[in-house]
Amino acid sequence: MEESQIKVPVIPELTKEDFVSDQMVKWCPGCGDHAILSSMEKVFPKLGIRKEDFVVVSGIGCSSRFPYYMNTYGIHGIHGRAAAIASGVKIANPELSVWMITGDGDCLAIGGNHFIHVVRRNLDINIILFNNKIYGLTKGQFSPTTPKGAKTKTSPLGTIEIPFNPGELVIGAQGTFFARVTDSNPKMMVDVLFEAARHNGTSVVEILQNCVIFSNNIHALITSKETKENNQLHLKHGEPMLFGKQKDKGIILRRTNLEVVKLGENGITEKDILIHNKFNHDTGVHNMLARMAPPEFPAALGVIRAVEQETYGQALMDIIDIAKNTSPLKSVDDLLNSGNIWEI
């Protein structure tokens, strides 16, 4: 009797080189995008996915040149529409690992509608949002994340608009995964991208990216050597939210608000500090964490929210299966001859 054979797909060991494209990278020297590209090239080979099964989709903007620089299947789409294109790719073939690369203008201004809807549907794609708080490719106009009052090409006297906070938008749109990293911390970037890839559902990773030309040092309060210890809270699931050089500062929940405290002051001990629970379905604390910003608070970095919920793809496959098992129509001929028909 023959041994039955179980086929286990063998995925050859991949390396960074498998994903480096032959195209010249044309971002400005010093642009944060370079570090992001390098992190992505490190993450892809480690995911246990065939290199042919990656699809990188983008819209328009500096960041959106990304697909040309990754040796995968890729589409460089049109402005704002990457989420819609990526949705079609993923729904058409759920086996693919779909990565959407976008910027703050592409994703949150012209593409805002597609963005909130893909998040709401919890389609299993990974959205990497390069947030440099400015329009780079069109040379320096304010974007939906530009801080109020910032002087740009189209706000010579300072913007009069309230900016979006991507994390709040994601959570408000029923998002299941939101993380934030800086372009200057490659290790955290790799870890978070890895986790985003593993998450079932729409993963949104906001990368605080520096545009050296049009908004240089826009994230300096969070990223500069001098201030980062006090202005970065590195979230780890199950661990207390401590920060500062000596890890002597922390976040507590007082009534309905978050508050920064110092260990030892006013009788505060480590036990009082909030423990991060990224799996919490309740959006309250996650939303407050996403909102925190210097100088009053440190910026929350790492995975803020990662909750389990049925994905669009799973729900769709389930109803397709039911339809296949229950429909009397097995072919289009059956359909054409169904219902009221008559012979002549």
């Binding site: 819609a84 949705s87 079609g88 729904i91 597609h114 809807h117 039911i322 296949k324």
Partner: peptide, 23 residues
Amino acid sequence: KQFSVKAFQAEDEIAGICSSLGA
């Protein structure tokens, strides 16, 4: 759906065609 049709009601007309193009 018994024919595996993926009929996607998009959030707008643009997403309608862009999702199709992705597919």
